[in-house]
Design a protein around this nucleic acid. Structure first.
Length: 685
DNA sequence: CTTAGGG
DNA sequence: CCCTAAG
């Protein structure tokens, strides 16, 4: 028997119709590529998405006319949830008044264990906390006054519907991530323990207190703190000779940012060299600061973070950045590491990029465990009382793990932006996982069902929180599926494999039925098309940045100047240095790949991509090709030598078979007349 | 832009 | 994953 010569008849008898010409159009390819590129960074689409959404909101959020004095540029937001109406009160307050923030735990209310600790930041019913991070943004708005739009003032937001139904102009409920999880055990009606009642923060009021501190030290480096916690240094996958990453002590003894000066380094100034030596300090920590520190002088530079985030899209497009440098070149410096300047200005502030709750569309409840969960979720609540035994959640926002950045005061604002962006990207890409908090208590048992845990459709989901935590092992998502399968189904392709069919994900109002594990096209799951993230013209961003006095470590840079920065060869180059984050293929993806290759062969990666990974933006055809390459290699080596998530032998066998087949086909075609090849082929198949 | 391979 | 030569 002789196999058809046309390649259209492929492995295992697949008939492979030639790719429609249309799909090969240059435009299509370009589009595809663009899409792929734009998605480089979102292994954590959810986070990115959320962040993006929040950004959007922030941008459009009302600016208060109630500008603060030039010194106190940060604002504290008070969120007071009242028992009765559950209204969220948000008020601007100024630095130094941290302790006036009221963090009321809704849980507390429910537990009725104690009266609402109004105006007592230390009482620490910290279910709602860390509003400080977001304030920064608000602050900037105030300062810049550029966001006086829809709402007009904070007041507008003050009484946002707690449930989120009552929206304040800029609220975007639609943007909320909604997750519906079927509570399969609900029917048993059994609600076991595990509805942990501990409000951990209660035990440690100091955790959040003092977060705002930012000091202006004598030296002239700018230290910026992005909110976050416990980010292990290892999860900061970027560094290079001129990038310094300093891990801060996570210990309780660590005074955190209240003593930023300790991070400061002395040394020669490199600024004039024009090189963009930037120090990035990734602080892994949670704020455990004694209340007494609250009075520290603080300055706020968060405004820039906002800018950074606004640039999300643009930045992502240029993901290559100095932050991701081949690991070989990475260096991590301790605090005692080389310094770049003697004069640094240390200022820190946190920008909780994701305090969406403040924007009013949600309760904005934010939980934080005493243990210092890396990041906490803000504003998540039940959107609707679900029927059946489904639990609906709406994750309003996530806080981004803290991030400390230090750079010479001579650095440009543009470089700061990039730096922050890079840091963010690194963190996001470095591996995050989701933690679940129930009444402030971390739920560790991933195997419990929701109902067992106490999360049912009638459970006060307001008490449920999620946190983004650095993934310690940086393992492929697939290694910790249980951790997030119920929460981040759209985050990584992996959940696909382990995700039970009884779950449904509602994302941005769009409901994607849970795809079968075998589905060829992984895309729907992998992607979350949120590239619509705000990417306002850089100019506006730059403007605001420039306006922000706090950041003026560089002689006023005008918009034009900033705009020019990126064009600089050097910068471009550094940006180009960014390496994409590593995203191991899940078994599901491998299967899809194998299946596609079986049909299409090994020489049509673009087609393979379109067929099986069309929606997986982060998988380029080159990636697929490479993966196939490694798969073949993997299949040939002994199982002991294999690493990473084990690929089922069955799949590997298919890989070898398909590879052999297509290799022959290729050879056949090249030889034009390979009779014996056909014979072999026919024998084999 | 795609492929194919080496790094 | 990156980089690049080829086509």
């Amino acid at each position: 028997m002789v196999l058809p010569k046309r390649l259209d008849y492929g492995f295992n008898g697949y008939q492979v119709p030639p790719m429609p010409r249309a799909t090969r159009s240059a435009r299509g390819r370009r589009t595809f590529r663009k899409r792929a590129e734009n998605n480089k960074m979102c292994p954590f689409d959810l986070l990115a998405t959320v962040a993006g959404e929040i950004l959007l909101e922030r941008e459009s959020s009302p600016a208060s006319t109630n500008a603060s004095n030039e010194k106190d540029r940060s604002i504290c937001i008070e969120q007071v949830r009242k028992n009765e109406d559950k209204a969220v009160k948000i008020e601007p307050c100024y630095q130094g008044s941290i302790d006036t923030r009221v963090l009321v735990s809704e849980l507390a209310q429910q537990a009725e264990e104690s009266p609402l600790p109004q105006n007592d930041g230390h009482s620490g019913f910290a279910s709602v906390m860390s509003t400080d991070c977001s304030e920064c943004f608000v602050d900037e708005k105030l300062v810049n006054g550029e966001n006086k739009n829809e709402m007009g003032s904070f007041a507008s937001k003050v009484d946002l519907g707690f449930s989120g139904y009552r929206e304040s102009g800029d609220c975007k409920l639609d943007c909320g991530t909604q997750i519906i999880i079927k509570d399969e055990l609900q029917k048993t009606g059994k609600v076991s323990n595990g509805t942990g009642a501990g409000i951990s923060c209660l035990e440690d009021p100091g955790v959040w207190d003092g977060k705002h501190s930012a000091l202006v030290s004598s030296d002239s480096s700018v230290k910026v703190r992005l909110c976050g916690d416990n980010i292990p240094l290892s999860s900061f996958p970027a560094s290079r000779e001129d990038v310094k990453i300093v891990s801060r002590d996570d210990d309780e003894n660590s005074s955190g940012c209240t003593h930023p000066s300790i991070i400061r380094k002395s040394g020669r100034s490199v600024s004039r060299i024009g090189d963009r030596r930037i120090r990035k300090i990734l602080a892994s920590r949670y704020w455990k600061v004694s209340p007494k520190l609250k009075d520290e002088t603080r300055s706020n530079v968060d405004g820039d973070f906002k800018s950074i985030w606004r640039n999300r899209k643009g930045c992502y497009r240029r993901q290559r950045s100095q932050m991701n440098i081949p690991f070989k070149k990475r260096k991590f410096f301790g605090r005692s590491s080389v310094s770049n300047s003697d004069r640094w200005i240390s200022c820190e502030g946190k920008s909780d990029l994701l305090e969406k709750g403040i924007n009013g569309d949600t309760s904005g409840s934010c939980m934080k465990t005493r243990g210092g969960t890396a990041s906490s979720v803000v504003g998540q609540h039940t959107s609707i009382q679900s029927r059946d035994s489904y639990v609906k959640l709406r994750i309003k926002s996530f806080r981004v793990p803290e991030l400390l950045i230090e750079m010479p005061d001579t650095a440009t604002v543009g470089s700061l932006k990039r730096t922050v962006m890079e840091a963010m990207t690194s963190i996001l890409g470095g591996g995050l996982r989701v933690g679940v908090l129930l009444q402030g208590k971390k739920v560790r048992d991933d195997n419990k069902t929701l109902s067992q845990t106490g999360i049912s459709h009638d459970y006060p989901l307001d008490a449920l929180g999620f946190s983004l935590e650095p993934n310690p092992s940086q393992n492929p998502p697939s290694l910790c599926p249980r951790d997030s399968s119920s929460i981040l189904p759209c985050d990584t392709p992996q959940p696909l494999a382990s995700y039970p069919a009884d779950s449904t994900v509602v994302h941005q109002g769009t409901c994607h039925a849970s795809p079968e594990p075998h589905m060829v096209n992984l895309g729907n799951f992998i992607e979350s098309d949120h590239d619509s993230a705000p990417s306002p013209a850089d100019t506006s961003v730059d403007k605001s940045t420039t306006d922000s006095k706090a950041l003026v470590s560089v002689p006023e840079i005008n918009v034009e100047a900033l705009a020019v920065v990126p064009v600089h060869r050097k910068l471009k180059r550094s940006e180009m240095a960014q390496r994409r984050i590593r995203r191991p293929f899940s078994v599901t993806e491998v299967e899809a790949l194998v299946q596609a290759v079986e049909k299409l062969g090994t020489g049509r990666w673009r087609d393979v991509k379109m067929r099986a990974f069309d929606n997986a933006k982060h998988r380029t055809y080159v990636d697929l090709k490479d993966k196939w390459k490694t798969l073949v290699h993997t299949a040939r080596i002994s199982p002991q030598q294999r690493r990473g998530e084990p690929v089922p032998q069955e799949l590997l066998d298919r890989v070898l078979a398909a590879h052999a087949y297509w290799s022959k086909q290729q050879a056949k075609q090249q030889l034009k007349q390979p009779p014996e090849t056909c014979l072999l082929s026919s024998e084999k198949y």
